[in-house]
Amino acid sequence: MGVAFRDILTEFRDTVGWEALAGVAAVDAHNALYQFLSIIRQPDGTPLMDQEGRTTSHLSGILFRTANFLEKGIRPVWVFDGTPPDFKQETIEVRRAIRDRAGERWQDALERGDIAEAYKQARSSSRIDENVIGTSQELLSLLGIPCVQAPSEGEAQAAHMVEKGDAGYVVSQDYDTLLFGAPVLVRNLAVSGKRKVRGRTISVYPERILLSDVLKGLALTRSDLVRVALLVGTDFNSGIKGVGAKTALRMVQRGEFEQTMRERLPDTEWEAIMEFFLAPPATDSYSLHWNAPDREGIIRMLCDRFDFSQERIQKALDSMGAKAGQKTLDSWFS
């Protein structure tokens, strides 16, 4: 998911310490939930579940990430996707097919006893359904964390909130956020500081990307950056086969964008997609208030309804210090 921009952004990714991230963070909810659902799994790919078999990976992820954020002085606001634009339909169908196929392959692998393959396929089968969104929002509200409903793409709404100054940065793994004009994007805010990449676990550190650095460094306008993305492929169009970020960048810098699109992707109505990236639907009607976590409510939901261990939840709640914004002495101990 997201645009494959890694190759051209490497030099603009600055590793930052957690202490530099204190403040309001606009979290791309679907991106975070997808991460939780795909990563928080047992070795054979089975997600965390309660006794009735309902998936609870996302609830675990939300609780511990929120505890970690609050402890670090980060006040998150979760931004949820609204109605996707029409031209995303194709991508959505392709993804659904991939997920369904992965689900079947997961079962096959389990029957064969191929645990590694089962895990891999299980991750790809992760889906965010209404139930996941509903329980996520319920838990966030108990945690005292505000949620914002985007009119369309969540990333676009998050970018808008940073542009307005209501949030300091967008939290997402996807570079698309930059296409939507987010001035600051922060990646890798996992609790563990670890991430699974192609089956391997690597240490990751929070990294910050400033849109202004990217545009200046690559000598592009934001429209140019979107042009590069359109050539590579976005959530709304499949790009040109064999054209990666570096090639696309060169094409745009040489002014060959329109010609290339005409020749190689004649059926793509890129003007509409471009317009969507540059002026996406976003709303100003939201209010950002953080409340103290409702400890009893959280325990009722997670322990009584979803079979979480009371001890683990209690510990996470304690680490929140029950108070958002309280720093710990950790930053001052060497």
């Binding site: 204190a22 403040g23 002085g73 914004g325 710990t328 002495l329 001052w332």
Partner: peptide
């Protein structure tokens, strides 16, 4: 020794 809270905006 007491750690500070973050100043709210």
């Amino acid at each position: 020794l007491l750690a500070p809270r973050i100043e709210a905006d």
